[in-house]
Nucleic acid binder design. Structure first.
Lengths: 254, 254
DNA sequence: CGACTTCATTATGTCAGACATATGACCGTT
DNA sequence: AACGGTCATATGTCTGACATAATGAAGTCG
């Protein structure tokens, strides 16, 4: 049948008990997605490059247009391509976007945290590793623009009831993560912070006094960063996160 | 037209210049995927639950089967569902799988590291934050089974030319990350380690003597963990990673 | 000559219907 | 109880058609 794109993938010929389902042939749409992904990841197709049109891909792979479309859906939802309609439409290779990775990891953590594999304490522990170090690096590295951004973020206090807090600009912790100058801090720290924030927001267990105290800690941390004092910035961030711990644990018990 | 699942999403009525393309209606397959994703992420549909069959989803959403199938492709490639053919087939909500998140993050990092946004030094810096702390936590927490695994991993030296190194069992660094008992260490550390290992493997710049030295460090770290000495395990891991730094930087200049 | 409108072209989005194939349950036979 | 065959069910793939979005070219008007 035309849809059988490649030959069989025989199951592992071993004596050990394996849990894989014996499925000889991957669906054609999956194989086509795999082939196109390989071209993208290897650099054969670069950011902004346009894939052949759907009819052209049909000819190239010898399959129907609905099979091609399913393959493109796979790639698009993995943020490898994006499609546009119209005369200049088509599927274009996406620009690498860390924000999407952050969102995807955050979604995974959000699901995992409600299973026995991941606990709130694990998130708090990881945060306690990342964010004090982030504050330290920010104090060491931040240029004047970055320092301005950190100070501004500390000066815009937020509470869950304030819708402006979540619209348009990063909050204080995000700004610190970015101020490290190392994108990995954001990619690792942001998903953790997002899950924790969502949980706190949902639980509605933080008093105004507690918010005021948190905002004050933000200001102190920002001032240490502005003053170029890494040790103080790190220590203050660690104290701040330790102070927050009971709030998260209170939220976690709901 | 039947495919228009919901009304228009009007563009933001603001004076500020926005870069979003004015696309009033999200495709139906995207809207359907969003709706099903919400049911999964919110817990309305749990792991193992079967979604309605394709014809049933057609009736429920009032769209064609190819539109439904495209929506299912979106969810499946985001690891939210998996489909099986046959009489007991259908689409089933996936069990949360951190390995897939690790793979996805690793793929993102692998792409990003070749852009100006992420450098090899950033990966090394993140690793230098995570893995010494992982060694420390492993020394504090590991039970006898975990200690056995760490010792065994240290005792199976590996080189890039040895295909057995990469088949079936975790390497030493992975074992340390898991030995923390905090899944986040694996989810954050493994992708970084994988990108670095791939780069080192590809560059083929490590001599046998350097491998021997690395293996020796592994044994020393494992012994500190077995002895329950967190400070020594952390310091030795930090020293080990610092020793490796020139190898990665050599690989990075190719 | 610039602005505006119209239209053609191109590409994706969606549909209906059909057929292929995988898969497990069920039933009859040994 | 085991095995083989059959059947129902569900997904995989296909074909052909039409809808619709989006862009650029061409013509018109002031």
């Amino acid at each position: 049948m035309a849809g059988h794109v490649t030959g069989d993938a025989a199951p592992a010929a071993t004596g050990r008990k394996v849990h894989l389902r014996v499925q000889r042939i991957r669906p054609a749409y999956q194989q086509i997605a795999d082939e196109l992904r390989t071209q993208i990841v290897s650099g054969q197709l670069g950011s902004g490059d346009r894939l052949p049109s759907e009819p052209e891909l049909c000819k190239a792979f010898g399959v129907s247009r609905s099979t091609i479309r399913e393959a493109l859906r796979v790639l698009a939802s993995q943020n490898l391509v994006e499609t546009r309609r119209g005369a200049t439409g088509g599927s274009f290779v996406s620009t690498p976007d860390p924000e999407r990775s952050v969102a995807a990891l955050g979604a995974s953590l959000g699901i995992l945290v409600d299973t026995p594999r991941l606990h709130l304490d694990d998130l708090l522990e990881a945060r306690l590793l990342l964010e004090p170090m982030a504050a330290r690096l920010a104090a060491e590295r931040a240029d004047t623009d970055t320092i301005s951004a950190v100070l501004a973020a500390a000066d815009s206090p937020r509470q869950p009831s304030d819708p402006r807090s979540f619209s348009g600009h990063f909050d204080f912790h995000s700004t610190i993560l970015m101020a490290t100058g190392n994108l990995l801090f954001t990619m690792m720290g942001q998903p953790v912070a997002d899950v924790l924030r969502t949980r706190l927001h949902r639980a509605e267990v933080v008093s105004s006094a507690e918010w005021d105290q948190a905002n004050e800690s933000h200001r102190v941390i920002a001032q240490h960063i502005a003053a170029g004092d890494p040790a103080a910035a790190e220590q203050e961030m660690r104290n701040h996160l330790n102070d927050l711990r009971p709030l998260y644990q209170r939220a976690g018990s709901w």
